[in-house]
């Protein structure tokens, strides 16, 4: 059905264009459908939550936003590592067993890995980085990995922001996000 609608719309556009071309009357200008031509140039990008906010310095943000992910690791791993050690000078490894270089190497390539085979979550106690669900407390996960040490027990006052859920319940079906506050 939808396919037919699109075809009909396309024909209508074609007819209106033809009508316009054949006519000398300026008043017969029909709307010719949306214009999708042209080049679109990148201004911003994002994958994992708060990575840019926490790890990218002010002077680097413009450049980070237009560095393709496949180049981000090489360009930003070392500055991410400095930033991590500035945030937590006592960092050795985290609960995932990653040392500073490994952890920041994983973070600097800012893509969100999504499993097509089952549970999708930022971290649910079992699955790690298989997606990001709406209810995931991603900030606590990141704080724990940055500050919590190898057992996740270090620096207690900064490993959770104690905001554990959204202010509105999510929907179980599409579009999943709650209706806006009005």
């Amino acid at each position: 059905m939808k396919f037919n609608n699109i075809k009909i719309a396309a024909i209508a556009v074609l007819i209106s264009l033809t009508a316009y071309n054949c006519s000398n009357d300026d008043d017969s200008k029909e709307p010719s459908g949306p214009d999708f031509s042209g080049n679109y140039i990148q201004e911003d990008q994002m994958a994992r939550p708060a990575i840019n906010t926490v790890f990218v310095s002010m002077g680097q943000k413009d450049a980070f936003n237009v560095t393709v992910p496949s180049n981000q690791g090489a360009a930003y791993q070392s500055s991410f590592e400095s930033r991590l050690l500035a945030l937590n000078p006592g960092y050795t490894t985290n609960a995932l067993g990653m040392d500073a270089a490994t952890f920041t190497g994983a973070l600097a390539t800012d893509v969100l890995t999504v499993s097509l085979d089952g549970t999708t979550t930022f971290f649910d106690g079992t699955n790690v980085l298989t997606g990001r669900a709406l209810a995931d407390d991603v900030i606590d996960v990141e704080l724990l990995l940055i500050f919590g040490g190898p057992m996740g027990t270090d620096n207690g006052p900064v490993t959770s922001d104690h905001v554990d859920a959204n202010d509105k319940p999510f929907l179980s079906s599409f579009p999943y996000l709650a209706a806006p506050h009005m």
């Binding site: 042209g38 080049n39 679109y40 140039i41 990148q42 201004e43 911003d44 990008q45 994002m46 994958a47 992910p69 800012d110 893509v111 969100l112 890995t113 999504v114 499993s115 097509l116 085979d117 298989t130």
Partner: peptide, 18 residues
Amino acid sequence: MIGGSGNINSWVETKRKQ
């Protein structure tokens, strides 16, 4: 439509018309 099985990587961009 996006690979069927295994893992994918994903991210979002905004791009401005020139």
